[in-house]
């Protein structure tokens, strides 16, 4: 037991920059996919038919591709088209594409679950489209959007471990680096599990706070 704790304490400093990388990748992916996903999600519901088809095609094809294939497709597929991204940005782009497709669906689900009458009522009092979304639809849709989205964020954190396949040293790869030197896997896997859990548990706690914050509208 003392040996196990020693091995864990020994490893912690080596994992810090990896942990930072995992948080950075997750943050970029979550923020970019949130913005792109909500915009395209609204486009999917209210846009003209051609745009709706385009977005539908995008989400369905991306959601149908395993994320691993998507990562390698971006990494090896873009350079021949003249876009030579570094390992880091190739991995971030692939993860963002994947997450965006999911956020589009969360948005579509949340917004289209709001009764039509709300939109019609907002029109009848003379609100323009932007105002209808901002003051009427989004406040109600947000609390339906939050639970699946936070779930998706924890998935993004765990999924970020895939960046190590392109040689980006995230938390998982930092763990493998220490194991590669010490040949003692168990303490490191244990430590890794605790660190991922700590991140994701904080996120789900935060989500409960957010859900309470947006629960003020009574139906």
């Amino acid at each position: 037991m003392a040996q196990l704790i020693d091995a864990i304490v020994y490893a912690i400093p080596y994992l810090m920059s990896g942990l930072g990388m995992t948080l950075l990748v997750s943050l970029i992916v979550v923020v970019l996919s949130l913005v792109a996903g909500v915009v395209l999600g609204v486009g999917l519901i209210y846009g003209p038919l051609s745009l709706r088809w385009l977005i539908r095609l995008l989400t369905d094809s991306i959601r149908g591709i395993p994320i691993l294939v998507l990562i390698f497709a971006v990494y090896y597929g873009l350079p021949p088209l003249g876009l030579n991204l570094s390992s880091f940005w190739a991995a971030v782009l692939a993860l963002t594409l994947f997450k965006t497709a999911q956020v589009i669906e969360y948005t579509r689900g949340a917004v289209s679950s709001i009764p039509r009458g709300q939109m019609e009522a907002a029109k009848s009092i003379g609100l323009i489209f932007g105002q209808r979304l901002r003051y009427v639809i989004f406040p109600q849709a947000t609390r339906r959007f939050l639970p699946p989205w936070v779930n998706g964020v924890t998935d993004a954190v765990k999924g970020s471990a895939l960046v190590s396949l392109l040689g980006v040293v995230d938390l998982m790869q930092a763990i493998n680096q220490v194991i590669g030197r010490t040949y003692e896997p168990m303490p490191l896997y244990l430590l890794g599990a605790v660190m991922y859990f700590a991140i994701n548990y904080s996120l789900s706690s935060l989500s409960r706070v957010l859900e309470r914050r947006y629960a003020y509208i009574k139906e």
């Binding site: 080596y14 040689g167 040293v169 790869q173 493998n176 680096q177 194991i179 590669g180 030197r181 040949y183």
Partner: peptide
């Protein structure tokens, strides 16, 4: 190269 297999390619204690 890689960074996870001693003694071929790995990070020493100094990183």
């Amino acid at each position: 190269t890689g960074s996870t297999n001693a003694p071929w390619h790995f990070e020493d204690e100094a990183g």
